[in-house]
Design a protein around this nucleic acid. Sequence first.
DNA 1: ATCCCTTTGTGAAGCGATGCACAAAGTCGG
DNA 2: CCGACTTTGTGCATCGCTTCACAAAGGGAT
Lengths: 225, 225
Amino acid sequence: MKSPSQSRDRGIPEATVARLPLYLRALNGMAERGVATVSSEDLAMAAGVNSAKLRKDLSHLGSYGTRGVGYDVEYLVYQISRELGLTQDWAVAIVGVGNLGRALANYGGFVSRGFRVAGLLDADPEVVGDDIAGLNVEHIDVLESVIERRGVSIVVLATPAMAAQEVCDRVVAAGVTSILNFAPVVLSVPDGVDVRKVDLSIELQILAFHEQRKAGGPLMAVDSQ
Amino acid sequence: MKSPSQSRDRGIPEATVARLPLYLRALNGMAERGVATVSSEDLAMAAGVNSAKLRKDLSHLGSYGTRGVGYDVEYLVYQISRELGLTQDWAVAIVGVGNLGRALANYGGFVSRGFRVAGLLDADPEVVGDDIAGLNVEHIDVLESVIERRGVSIVVLATPAMAAQEVCDRVVAAGVTSILNFAPVVLSVPDGVDVRKVDLSIELQILAFHEQRKAGGPLMAVDSQ
DNA sequence: ATCCCTTTGTGAAGCGATGCACAAAGTCGG
DNA sequence: CCGACTTTGTGCATCGCTTCACAAAGGGAT
Ligand SMILES: NC(=O)c1ccc[n+]([C@@H]2O[C@H](COP(=O)([O-])OP(=O)(O)OC[C@H]3O[C@@H](n4cnc5c(N)ncnc54)[C@H](O)[C@@H]3O)[C@@H](O)[C@H]2O)c1
Ligand SMILES: NC(=O)c1ccc[n+]([C@@H]2O[C@H](COP(=O)([O-])OP(=O)(O)OC[C@H]3O[C@@H](n4cnc5c(N)ncnc54)[C@H](O)[C@@H]3O)[C@@H](O)[C@H]2O)c1
């Protein structure tokens, strides 16, 4: 049922994809500090992973290192960026401009990595019309036209949980296939749509679990990031 | 080097721990709607996972289901809460009260799950003294005393990346062993300290990767949450 | 040119998580 | 009390990721 020989192997493991941004961040820091080349050992250290894992990850992109020397920092930045699709810039819309939506809109870290906030949408007439980070908050009614006209391909959901599925459905119907969800609900989407979720409450609960363990008995391994 | 027979098996897989909060959320929703019992099939559906996986996860906590019937919702809520350590309440301090820190402080979803914001700390004299969500922002100088006097056991880091490691070191020195980090840096901590990180930029980059793939060739599997 | 040193790229083993499939266990109607 | 039906709990095969360990590859010194 699968085709093991489809030109070359363009299947990068999901776990690897999730780490590429980590490497990219470390490499960007090095580039800024004027570092020209870096060994897998040093880069792995900076990214907080095992060096063998780093090498295997990078080997999925191609053979970009030089044995006995290491990796050219600039070149590797370019290759990873290209692989992640960061050489183009992505238009992002934020739906739900409350506490969290505002924080996200004001955050500079997106733009710096090729993500451009192209729209802010909310249902509350009180909020609509506000200027945030140089952008005007628009009414949720015009969601579809904003997505279409500004070429939005990634939507960030920061509405209350109640509204999330409904907004999600509209967003998907408008052709968006990548969603970052902050609402604490499991979104139901058709095949082909990517949903990633961030749930702070879950993170805290996981921490609480381990914290409880530490208090209980003094015999367990910890740490992870 | 390990002791395979230490009373009963108290080792719950990390992947299971990460899903328990999901089940808990689904169960709470059902409890509110007055549902008394639920089958693994239905609960799995609500949590967005495979039913066999759900059953295996729950089996790590004990045998709390009834064959032919399902799980008692209230009872399961209690068992999972206890396992996660949510029967006690946890004092949380937020360090860095900027865009993100404010959003977190104002967020009601923490308190509802047994997490109490017990302190807000910042280095900026402009911010110190502000009242946010009924709490006074204190100066980072008193970090150690706040942690000690209020029994803070979990710290949320929402400072700029530059300051994160320094604050982290102080927090760890003050005895905290659970940290939720929003700053885009790899924190270095001693063994026994748990760090979990949330990086929105990484999530967007992962979405961008898949989005690029979809545009490229029409032959790949997607979805995940 | 040759040798030595460093570091990559990867085969292969190990490990944990996933999902199937089913026997065991319990419910409920008669 | 029994038999049909439902649903759990889990053994087992499988899968994907991690880690080790090392041969191959390249650089630089002599
Ligand atoms: N604030 C946090 O730190 C935090 C943390 C974790 C999770 N969350 C989650 O993120 C989401 C947003 O949190 P928040 O604190 O910003 O809440 P908020 O109430 O401050 O903001 C929600 C915004 O969404 C808008 N909205 C409501 N219905 C809408 C709709 N149908 N279409 C468009 N906009 C709509 C509201 O007008 C409001 O401005 C929630 O689901 C919350 O659970 C927030
Ligand atoms: N805002 C977002 O949506 C967002 C998204 C992703 C990541 N982040 C990360 O979260 C962190 C905070 O983001 P933000 O947008 O709130 O930034 P911000 O600049 O608005 O807030 C940072 C706050 O930390 C305080 N601070 C600085 N040094 C400190 C110190 N040594 N001790 C205590 N407080 C100190 C500052 O005074 C400021 O109030 C950053 O690391 C950012 O990269 C933010």
